[in-house]
Design a protein around this nucleic acid. Sequence first.
DNA 1: GATGCTATTATGTATAGACATAATGTGTCA
DNA 2: TGACACATTATGTCTATACATAATAGCATC
Lengths: 230, 230
Amino acid sequence: MRRNSFRDIRAELERRIARRVWEPGAIIPGEEALAVEFGAARATVNRALQELARSGLVERKRKSGTRVALHSVRQARFAIPLVRQEIEQAGSLYHYTLLSREVRAAPDFLRARLALPADARVMHARCLHTADRRPYQYEDRWINLSAVPQAEKESFEETGPNEWLVANAPFSHAEFVFGAARASEEEKAVLQLPEGEAVFVAERMTWLAERPITLVRMVHPPTHRMVTTL
Amino acid sequence: MRRNSFRDIRAELERRIARRVWEPGAIIPGEEALAVEFGAARATVNRALQELARSGLVERKRKSGTRVALHSVRQARFAIPLVRQEIEQAGSLYHYTLLSREVRAAPDFLRARLALPADARVMHARCLHTADRRPYQYEDRWINLSAVPQAEKESFEETGPNEWLVANAPFSHAEFVFGAARASEEEKAVLQLPEGEAVFVAERMTWLAERPITLVRMVHPPTHRMVTTL
DNA sequence: GATGCTATTATGTATAGACATAATGTGTCA
DNA sequence: TGACACATTATGTCTATACATAATAGCATC
């Protein structure tokens, strides 16, 4: 019969926001008042409110207080699966091919995007992932060798850099960019697309504690769909 | 010169994982031991570790302890802003135009996707959202009038159905689909795109407690980027 | 009236101590 | 040997208290 766990408090606050007990934009009672109401410590209420703030349901500002977000800018989650898993879960046959692998100085665009020093050495790998022998994803990857020096010893003939990095170079922070584009000549050739076809492009940059790890551009045929639920 | 804030501790733990002080899969010292090491309370260390666990960098289990995650299969979140906010936050001028509005029987494809009965009546609205007078998003929306009957009274001349629905029809469940495609004739005309251009397509279906509310197809020019961080 | 200091206030964070809970190990008994 | 109760242990959570910090309002000053 405990009503004072931070989960219970969070759930009750969510309920009140959903039922419009507190209108969007309205200021809700302070931590102290809620603590009294729920018979809990302020720290417990604080935890509940912090989680609501993180999920975007409320906005908090010192001195001002906590208010229900105006346009509940809700957040959706999507999983970041390995290509292999994604394909095998769909019941298809996965196959990986390394197209090229090269160690070189970082090109300017890469240095700019990952904030690398002028003399940075990187690995550039291009790969193709197929599902049932049909092109599924063209992977164009850059790895910062000063952050992941062991990568230089890897051939990536059997295992792709994606799987290798997941197992050997954890990351703490990532940035994703999704978009559409017309297929470049190279993409058209690798993915076996007709002239002028559209492609779905996902780019990912990852860092581990401020150190840039990798930038990858993943290009899919236009049949590809990224699905997520809320 | 305090090194005992939970942020400092979290950062230091991230650093050690990054530098392989603790290998992936290895068990790291317990909260008590870390608290002594950092000269902080156990609760502070706990908070740091919980955040690392939430971001997927470590896995925690009672009694067993905390270990560095092997395959950090992770989830990213992305915000779902209103188009207007998205545009205004970028410092651009937002403008909305209703292209068409029609009440009709649900077409077959819609009945299939939203599981509507044969006699379902729906509203079909087509809108254009511009940023600095340039086409930004073409919105093709279907609203289930049996779930949201008040929508029939709305003209949607001034306020778009998106904003109206957010304020008037809460949803409990949603499904998102993202993809790329070649612009259709209609999309090409509305978004003023050259022949054969690619478009970024986002579709959203929402339900309120099993009742389908709306299906919307949002089409963007290929310059559009959906960005999210982790 | 504009500027800048100061008090106030709500949230943010840290702490010690306590108890809860889940997973694991261990010993007992049939 | 196997089932089951019990002890152990690391994480999970709550409390009360204290102080930190950001944002605001009000006052004083120029």
